[in-house]
Write a protein that binds this DNA or RNA. Structure first.
Length: 772
RNA sequence: GGGCUCAUAGUCUAGCUCGGUUAUGACGUCGCCCUUACACGGCGAAGAUCCGGUGUUCAAAUCACCGUGGGCCCA
């Protein structure tokens, strides 16, 4: 019989057509029932080109979760979203159009951001579709849509009314030239010439003094403590002593802290609010009371005494003179100092405390630990990231950002008495651009309001994704059926943010945990194990790889190379070599396609043996799929298909399947077993490589999609592992013997068959052309 | 700088919980081979002081301690 498959290798071009069929037949459509399996898909962020190849691997695996669940008979809801709020697109837009956010009209800037996002998003959607992601693309959502932002704002309003939000001071990076706070990502560093002043500080009630070197003597008025390294023996006798700060004459304590470096300056460091980021950390850690020495106008405040009103640089010059006059200076060194600079105005930034909104979280940590305990993590070890984070949270969550492209904080302030007014939930508000929805201030009856200009931290948006996809506040019936959702897949680097904030917010809003399972994946690194980045030039663009090799090759690589939960290396050559397995599968199928599919047959010893091995494979795959660990089935299927089924079994039964020197009954036993085995392999592999399995399945077995089949179940056949070993050893022995005698594989040879293989004698004889 | 986490041939990986064979298997490399499913194939070979050190033990890849390196997050 002619094989139904004629091509000699799997052609990835076929994927396009299969994709079209899936789309036309809508085989992944979802309507809510009682027993739903909902995936809280991470909405990827379009931050630039190319998309990270690790992310493509990540989404491939999330799709495997969906397909596994579908074949397990679950009603799968697999939403697709795009995260579009936040800083990266603002920076991307500024660079692309060579403009500055704050010098551009806000509405116009937002439009430019939106266009940039649309472009980047289109490419990501294309990649996701081409990867065979079986999600709901027709209804994909955006976190910057009116609907989504309405949800973010409504949930904020709810929390505001419950008293969960408060205002507090927080140190910000401040660019006083452009008059704005700036994000860490907008800070560049430059080596600037500056003076390192060695100052004499008196130790209280003694005549001794210690030397402290600083580049910021003008901040003496904001000095709250002196630190030295705990190992530094020079100062051990002064620990806990009071030190008199020159000029201001205030008293501070000398303490130890590991961040003080013995070799820098004198080894003793003055800690001021705020000279640098380390000061910020120390003020928080040591719970020091901050002093605001520099104002929003970039000038010294009243606490600076006679230096008030001067710019820090002027104040520095003056205070150095005064210190010298008063004899407080030991020496002055000219040094080059790595200074944080605003990317936009190129001046050194100042760190200034400013009022920001905070969402309470400290008092919820205990509750979050309880919720965390109830959630099953895949793999288990990554629960530790959450638990460790919960242990180390020591401040509430600052949720406001002085940025443009984000969900607006829905507050209007009374122009007269500054009373904040929060509108009713259920609508999307843009306070910077809209009139206050109320007409009179509830406190002073004034009619004029100022809209809040700030936006939310993006995690305020993303942390309600389970609520958005389950139509919280929008469709109660749908919500009831879908929430809590089933599983949250995500990467391990955002456990502390996305995963944690989702737990916090969903618990606050619904009193229920958002999902029962969390699936945490590792991080994609380059082939040397280094982080990929555009600047290092080691980033791999996934799109050409997928276009060249096909989605299934990429997906099988992802499954077989990435041990679940661990970081993984991306290597193009290795991805390419994965394609060989698909070719093997293709050719096994091509061979089988020359035999009719028959419903039953009487298996002989060889058939029973391979069926027992097959059952063992099913068992192992089931174990992997239950944990959504695709590494296990991928490796097991490849091993079985290539090294057991194709290498030994097919060779053993080839002649029997052709019916040469065998009875019809013996022949049918082989054909039946061959097809049963292949059909099982295809189903087991379907979640991992959906295209090739679909193609082969339809040619060989059914008009109905393989993705609408139920996964095969374990039959609990007794294992014959020892037989497998004997067979492969015997076959090796024959092949080696023929090789050493310079015989062709089809030549006859006389070799004794071991006793244990007696039941397989006829098949082995025909396979090797053995003489009696 | 701090916390967490990982470490087995060039690469991925089994074994480690509960110490005891010659340390699994695959990719890649090299050699030979067209054998009617497949040269994107078959057969075979080489390749690992199990990151380093110290300890416990008759015995350590496996247990303990101290380092080193990578990654992630925070600063």
């Amino acid at each position: 019989m002619e094989p139904k498959i004629s091509e000699k290798a799997w052609n990835p071009e076929l994927e396009k057509n299969i994709l079209k069929q899936w789309e036309e037949n809508k085989i992944y459509e979802f309507t809510p029932e009682e027993n739903n399996f909902t995936i809280d898909t991470p909405p990827p962020y379009p931050s630039g080109r190319p998309w990270h190849i690790g992310a493509a691997a990540h989404y491939s695996q999330i799709d495997m979760i969906a397909r596994t669940a579908r074949m397990a008979g679950k009603n799968v809801y697999f939403p697709i979203g795009i995260d579009r709020n936040g800083l990266p697109v603002e920076l991307y837009t500024e660079k692309k159009h060579k403009i500055r956010m704050r010098e551009t009209e806000r509405g116009e800037f937002l439009n430019l951001c939106r266009d940039a996002l649309d472009d980047l998003e289109a490419e990501m959607i294309l990649i996701m579709k081409n990867l065979g992601i079986s999600g709901d693309f027709a209804n994909y959502y955006r976190t910057d849509s009116e609907e989504y932002r309405t949800l973010t704002q409504s949930t904020f309003i709810k929390l505001w009314k419950k008293g969960e939000v408060y205002l507090a001071n927080r140190p910000n990076n401040y660019d006083w030239v452009s008059g704005t706070t700036i994000a860490d990502a907008e800070i560049i560093y430059d080596d600037l010439q500056t003076k390192l002043v060695y100052m004499k500080f008196k130790i209280k009630d003694t005549d001794q003094e210690i030397i402290i070197a600083s580049t910021r003597p003008e901040l003496l008025c904001a000095c709250k403590t002196i630190i030295v390294n705990p190992e530094d023996e020079r100062y051990s006798k002064y620990i806990g002593k009071k030190i008199i700060v020159p000029i201001t004459n205030s008293e501070v304590e000398l303490r130890t802290h590991h961040s003080a470096k013995e070799e820098f300056g004198s080894g003793a460091v003055m800690v001021c609010s705020y000279g640098d980021q380390n000061d910020v950390a120390l003020f928080r850690e040591l719970q020091l009371e901050e002093i605001v020495a520099i104002g929003l106008d970039g000038r010294m405040t009243d606490v600076a005494g006679e230096y008030a009103g001067l710019k820090p640089k002027q104040a520095r010059t003056k205070i150095i003179e005064d210190l010298e006059t008063a004899g407080f200076v030991e020496k002055i060194e000219d040094i080059v100092h790595r200074t944080p600079i605003s990317e936009r105005s190129k001046i050194p930034i100042e760190i200034i405390p400013m009022e920001e909104y905070y969402l309470k979280q400290k008092e919820k940590i205990g509750k979050m630990k309880e919720v965390g305990k109830e959630i099953t993590f895949h793999p288990t070890m990554h629960k530790q990231i959450l638990m460790n984070w919960l242990e180390s949270i020591n401040i509430d969550w600052p949720i406001s950002r002085r940025r443009f492209y984000g969900t607006e904080i829905p507050i209007w302030y009374c122009k007269n008495c500054s009373e904040p007014h929060v509108p009713e939930p259920g609508k999307y508000y843009r306070p910077w651009n809209e009139k206050c929805p109320i007409t009179n201030c509830t406190k002073c009856k004034s009619t004029e309001f100022i809209g809040e200009e700030r936006t939310f931290d993006t995690w305020m948006d993303s942390s309600v994704s389970p609520l958005f996809i389950s139509k919280f506040n929008r469709d109660d019936e749908f919500f009831k059926k879908v929430y809590p959702v089933s599983i949250r897949p995500q990467a391990k680097d955002i456990v502390r943010t996305w995963l944690y904030y989702t737990l916090l917010r969903c618990d606050e809003l619904t009193g229920e945990k958002p999902w029962s399972e969390a699936w945490v994946m590792g991080y994609g690194l380059d082939e040397k194990g280094m982080k990929m980045s555009k600047s290092k030039g080691n980033a791999i663009d996934p799109l050409p790889v997928i276009e060249k090799l096909g989605a299934d090759t990429f997906r099988f690589w992802s499954a077989s190379e990435i041990n679940h939960g661990y970081d993984f290396r991306c290597n193009e050559q290795k991805i390419e070599s994965t394609k060989k397995f698909l070719s093997k599968l293709w050719n096994v199928s091509r061979f089988l396609s020359s035999f009719p599919v028959i419903d039953s047959g009487i298996p002989n010893a060889s058939d029973k043996w391979i069926l027992s091995e097959l059952d063992k494979l099913v068992k192992e795959c089931k174990k992997g799929y239950e944990e959504y660990n695709f590494f296990i089935p991928a490796i097991a299927i490849r091993e079985f298909t290539w090294n057991v089924f194709a290498a030994h079994y097919i060779e053993m039964v080839k002649a029997r399947a052709y019916g040469i020197d065998f009875s019809d009954e013996e022949r049918d036993g082989a054909i039946f077993t061959l097809h049963k085995t292949l059909a099982t392999i295809l189903k087991l592999l379907a979640p991992i490589t959906p295209f090739i399995t679909e193609h082969l399945w339809k040619i060989l077995y059914s008009n109905e999609s393989i993705h609408q089949q139920k996964q095969v179940s374990v039959e609990n056949i007794e294992e014959q592992t020892d037989i497998t070993k004997e067979i492969s050893e015997f076959n090796s022995k024959v092949w080696n013997e023929k090789k050493s005698q310079n015989l062709s594989l089809k030549d006859s040879i006389k070799i004794e068959i071991p006793k244990i293989l007696e039941p397989f004698k006829k098949d082995l004889k025909s396979m090797h052309n053995l003489l009696d």
